[in-house]
Write a protein that binds this DNA or RNA. Structure first.
Lengths: 113, 113
DNA sequence: ACAATTTGTTGATTTAAACGATCATAAAAA
DNA sequence: TTTTTATGATCGTTTAAATCAACAAATTGT
C-alpha cells in the first residue's frame, strides 16, 4: 500500500513472525495438494508473484490474498475464530469490571430459544 | 493495492464474510479495552482511517494492519494456529495417499532429542 | 444544557502494490 | 539424457492504498 504504513514497513517481531508462519503454512498446504503457485493464484485471481509474496509473509500484501488462499485451500474454518469475542477473556474481564452489574444473574429461561 | 487484484476487488462471499467478522471482532476487542481507533492506530502506526477500514473488513488493506491490530490487542495467539499443517487433515491425507509408504514405521528412538 | 471525544465523509497528494514480460535457475517428468 | 514445469529476479506501467486536512454528525461526559 502506497504511503506504506509503519506497521507494514517494519512490523514488530511478533507480527513478522506470525505472517511468516502463516505463509509457510499456506505453502505447505498448497504443496500437499499438488498445486503450483500459478494454479492456486488462478483460482483466486492472483498472479504467481503475489502468491510468492504471501508464502513469504509479505506485510504489505492485501489481506484478501491471504484469506483467499486459505479459502481456496479449504482452511478458512479456523479463521472465523480469530479474535472471537467469546474467547477474549482479557476483554471480557475488562468489560465486566466496568459495569459493576448489580443486576441479578440471568435466569435459566433466558437460554431458551 | 493498485491494479486491484480480483480477489480483493470482488471476493467470494466466504472471504468477504470472514473479513467482516474479523473486523467486527477487532472492533469489539478495542471497545472493551476503551480505546479509540486513533489510539489503537497510534500504537501500531496506522491512521484512524485505516483502522476504520480494518473494522469494516476492507479486503484491499494490507495484512499487516489486521495482524498488527490483533497483536496490539493481545489476540495474536490463535493466529499462530492458522492453517497449521498439523491441523490440516485434508492435506495430510493427500500427502500420505501419495507415498504408499512401504517403508517401515519410524522407530521410537527417532523421537529422542 | 454544554463541552469533549469519536467517528463519518470528502478531496487532494504521494507512493508502491500488483501486473505482465523476460530471462535465469531448479526441479520434475518424459 | 532431454523436456517440461516451477520458482526466482528484475524492470516498466498502471492504479489505488494510505495519509492529511477540514468539516459534519454522533456519541459520551460533565
Amino acid at each position: 500500500m502506497p504511503r506504506v504504513s509503519k506497521i507494514a514497513e517494519s512490523p514488530p517481531h511478533a507480527v513478522e513472525q506470525a505472517l511468516a508462519r502463516l505463509g509457510r503454512n499456506i505453502r505447505t498446504a498448497r504443496l500437499r495438494r499438488k498445486l503450483s503457485r500459478s494454479e492456486l493464484g488462478d483460482r483466486i485471481g492472483l498472479s504467481r508473484y503475489v502468491m510468492g509474496d504471501i508464502e513469504r509473509g509479505k506485510p504489505t500484501t492485501a489481506v484478501a490474498g491471504y484469506v483467499g488462499a486459505l479459502w481456496a485451500l479449504g482452511l478458512l474454518r479456523q479463521f472465523d475464530e480469530l479474535a472471537d469475542p467469546d474467547l477474549d477473556l482479557e476483554g471480557k474481564t475488562l468489560e465486566s469490571a466496568r459495569s459493576p452489574s448489580t443486576a441479578p444473574k440471568r435466569r435459566a429461561y433466558d437460554d431458551d430459544f
